[in-house]
Amino acid sequence: MTTIDSPPPPTLRADSLQAIGVEDMGVRYDLRFTKKTTIRRSVGQILGRGSQEPFWALRHVSLRVVHGESLAVIGPNGAGKSTLLQVLAGIIRPSEGAVDVRGHVSGLLTLGAGFDRELSGRDNILLGGAFLGLEDEVTRRLLPSIIEYAELGDFIDAPIKTYSSGMRARLGFAIATSVDPDILLLDEVLATGDANFRAKSKARVIEIVRAAKAVVLVTHDMSWVTEYSNRAVLIEKGRLIMEGDPAEVVALHRQHTDEARAASAAAATAAGLDPGIAGQGRR
C-alpha cells in the first residue's frame, strides 16, 4: 500500500521522462575562502603562504532519475550527500560537469532554517512563501491549511522566538510541504518532532512522494530506503560507489560501515599499545 511501484521498465526510460540528469558532475570547495575569512589571512594566502589544495566534495558523479522514481542517497557523514541535494536544488553550481533538472523543485532541507525570530508565525509563512518563489495569492490561499497543519493555535501571531523547538519544526514542515513540487528533495527530515508529529509527517511525506514526479532522499534511516525507495545510490568521499536496488546498496553500506567500525576499533586498540602507530594508522 505504501510503496511506489517498482522501477519503470527500461523501455519507458525515454528522455521525455527524465526528471534529473547529472553528468560527470563535481563540486570543488576552495578552502582559501572558508568561513570567516579576514582580509589579512587572504592576503597572506594570495602571497603564497598557507596555500591549500582544492577539496572535491563530489566528483565524477553521474546519475539519472526518471519520473515516478524515488531515489535514496546513502553514505557516511561528510560523504557529500547534502552537497548533492544542494546542487540539485540549484543552491550550489557544479564546478565541473552538468546538471539538468526539469520541473519545480522543492526541498525539505533542514526545517525552519530561514525563520525570522522576531516576526510572527503568520509573517514568516508569507516571507517563507516569497523566498520559495510562490505567488502571493498562492501563499495566502495556503495560509489557513498551513496554520491548521502546524497546530499552532493562537501562537500563529506571536513571534517565532516564543515558540518551542517542536512548534518551530512543525511550522517549517507545514510550509515546506504546502508546495506541490514536481521534484522533491528530502534531507533527513523524518526525525523531527515528537512521536505523534513524526507519524503525521511521515504520512504526509509519503503522500507527497506519491504525488511528486521524482524524489531524491538523503537519509540514515535504512528501513525507509528499503521500504519507500525504488533505487538507491551509495556515496563515499564524494564518489558514487554503487547504484542499484535499495536492498543491495544498503547491504554494501552496512558492510562498509562495519569495516570502518572494525578499523577504528583496531586503531583504538593500537592506540592503547602504542600511541605513535595509532596516530599514523588513523585517517
Binding site: M25, V99, D100, V101, R102, H104, G133, E135, D182
Partner: peptide, 16 residues
C-alpha cells in the same frame, strides 16, 4: 499545479 514563478527547467553547466 504551477505555483512557482521560476523557470521549471534548469540546466546548469559548469562551463557556462
Amino acid at each position: 499545479m504551477s505555483v512557482t514563478s521560476e523557470v521549471p527547467a534548469a540546466f546548469r553547466n559548469a562551463a557556462d
